[in-house]
Design a binder for these strands. Sequence first.
DNA 1: CAAATAGTGTCTCTAAGACAATATCAC
DNA 2: GTGATATTGTCTTAGAGACACTATTTG
Lengths: 270, 270
Amino acid sequence: MQNEKDFLDNYRLEDYPRPSVTADIVVFKIRSQKTENFRKDPKGYLSLLLIKRGGHPYLGHWALPGGFLSQGESIEECALREVREETSVEPASLMSIGLFSEPGRDPRGWIISNAFVSVIGTDKENQQSGDDAADAQWFDVSFDSDGDKYILELCRGDIKIRAVLEEKQSRFGTTSYRITDSGELAFDHARIIAQALSALRNSAKDFDVIFDFLPERFTLTELQNVQETVMNISVLPANFRRKVANLVEETDDYTEGAGHRPAKLFKRRK
Amino acid sequence: MQNEKDFLDNYRLEDYPRPSVTADIVVFKIRSQKTENFRKDPKGYLSLLLIKRGGHPYLGHWALPGGFLSQGESIEECALREVREETSVEPASLMSIGLFSEPGRDPRGWIISNAFVSVIGTDKENQQSGDDAADAQWFDVSFDSDGDKYILELCRGDIKIRAVLEEKQSRFGTTSYRITDSGELAFDHARIIAQALSALRNSAKDFDVIFDFLPERFTLTELQNVQETVMNISVLPANFRRKVANLVEETDDYTEGAGHRPAKLFKRRK
DNA sequence: CAAATAGTGTCTCTAAGACAATATCAC
DNA sequence: GTGATATTGTCTTAGAGACACTATTTG
């Protein structure tokens, strides 16, 4: 019988058809919008990064950042590389949301995609150098159910993308969707975004991912705003503070210059 | 400029290197062991399916069932096909636990694997026709931490596999592991199994996946035993019943022939 | 001082955990 | 009857949600 070395030397993976593999990333951040009233805190919007396609297929449509997996890297490294290239910011987290492999999902051929959720923080020093490319833009997200339909709306200035989906399956904490109308989104990216939002909101429930949206030091109100923005809910400050009390620790510093009482800055407790 | 049809006609995915893609599945079931005491209920063991490798590489080692993704099927279809082939039972659930793509994970070359957890029920009529192949065996699982090490033990009669892992990262509800010692497990399958157990236990917390281990009708004690076996915990019957009360509905039937008070049979509430 | 956010105290209600007590069948 | 599981009731405690109240800054 053949020994292991001989076997491996003669093994030909290339004899069988293989798919191309990509990583697509749904990059989220909180966009802060200042108000005219100097007393009021800025309002936060959950937004995600899309890139306008400059080539076929789906020319002119909007797509998730992503790219092909190369030999010698893991899919996570591939995803991180793509996020860094598009945002020039180190992402604070990366969470896989599954492999999208339905035949026919990409007109170029047999291409399957591992999708990720990535969160980047709003670091004061590093003011979102993101939009290097004029074709990469941050879109404010809204995702709500209307009867048994789910409406995904993405807005950037006067650009409005509206996709319609329906629930396909809901198990193990996350929901998967079927596309009814992709709007101006390329490929099956409407579905990936919907699933990413479902996974993000699910993680935000246990206060895990919400820290990733903020700099190292933050006020409890900022933390609360992140959770409310991400999950599209609103909670009472007193209750929120109690729930996160064990997840944070105080620093000695306070905010300054707001038109109201200063707030103590906190750090995440390890 | 080229139109979309011309572009796609001339597109050559084959010009770039592509990995081979597999689905590996961690198939769980509850194995019931009768006791000598006619009054006592049988004890349940969480067990998983392994296949003894009959070829290189890892000849003679134990590996997860799995196979290569073919063109024209999704990765979920591929995984379901493999489970059916190995167990001749329709799995009750299938949950993706991520893409394993670290360079070097397979000595045959560039092979990446999407791993799944699958649960098959203990249906009374369909008595585990599973072990067609003499090289496919069900192993009882134990997975516990010992300091910062995690010990994975798989037993089948006198076959004992012992792997050692350490925690790599714990986020978003699941934990990932690094292999210290694979024991007699092939490839990176010790890591996949550890992650599968983490995902399974996480799902069992909210009483979702535990129904998949049982036939359509079951007693509340059976349901409780499944949760205790899967999560390796023990809870008081009174409290368990209260927690699942809204997830089940009564039937008119009772168990018979046990050496003690009969139990009402329940169904899962949709 | 007015407007806004920061922060604390406390009441109620629900759910979880612990434990006691009763019910019912097969041998 | 005995020994096992089945099933219900209730006490206590922890946590979530609601709400009232006080504190502090800047223009």
